[in-house]
């Protein structure tokens, strides 16, 4: 029951992109086609879950016992960027098709603030390892849903005659705003 609440809250109520404003760079950067948006979502799911597990273990077995919590930001970002590198190398050897599919999105992961944000939130909200994993998976699903919906909207937007001043980024931001408004309708279900 507790896990269902975490999942619903992360996907619908506190959507990581539309309500918490994390991971906006990929949200606007790779949402021009539905297929690339889904690929990015898969890469985020993969890296975010691993990153949440590794940073959880580091926080609970190294930083907190040694009273080094002030090193949190430095450690996490180093761990995440080397993790991304490692995942890339391992995937290349172990599963070339998956590597091909995620390929270009993996290096972008280091500067995706959603990854570091979720890693910090898992520690801040006192999750256990299991609920932290559920939390990370649910957030990445929420990220993917928002990304795919926006990509769908953008594919339609290309066919429209948008007023000159609003062409390009401004109209995409307004569309994202309306999408966020739609997600506000879920407020209060958890």
């Amino acid at each position: 029951m507790e896990y269902i609440a975490i999942v619903l809250s992360a996907i619908l109520v506190n959507n990581i992109v539309l309500a918490q404003f994390l991971g906006l760079c990929p949200f606007f950067g790779v949402s021009n086609k539905i297929s690339t948006a889904a690929g990015m979502g898969g890469a985020v799911l993969f890296v975010m879950t691993i990153a949440a597990i590794v940073t959880y273990l580091i926080a609970h077995y190294i930083l907190i016992p040694l009273d080094l919590v002030y090193l949190r930001t430095v450690t996490y970002i180093l761990v995440i960027s080397s993790l991304v590198q490692m995942v890339e190398i391992i995937l290349k050897k172990v599963s070339p098709p998956l590597y091909q599919a995620l390929g270009i999105f993996l290096p972008l992961m280091t500067t995706n603030c959603a990854i570091l944000g979720v890693a910090i939130l898992v520690i801040q909200q006192d999750h256990t390892l299991m609920s932290g994993v559920v939390f990370a998976i649910a957030h990445s699903i929420g990220f993917t849903i928002a990304l795919v919906i926006l990509a769908g909207i953008r594919e339609q937007l290309e066919l429209l005659n948008v007023p000159k001043g609003m062409r390009g980024n401004p109209i995409i931001l307004v569309a994202a705003g309306l999408l966020a408004m739609a997600f506000m309708g879920f407020a209060g279900i958890v």
Binding site: F21, M166, N169, P170, I171, I172, L173, V174, A176, G177, L178, A180, M181, M184
Partner: peptide, 8 residues
């Protein structure tokens, strides 16, 4: 939502 719209 207002944040996205205002920035747009």
């Amino acid at each position: 939502p207002g944040a996205f719209i205002a920035l747009g």
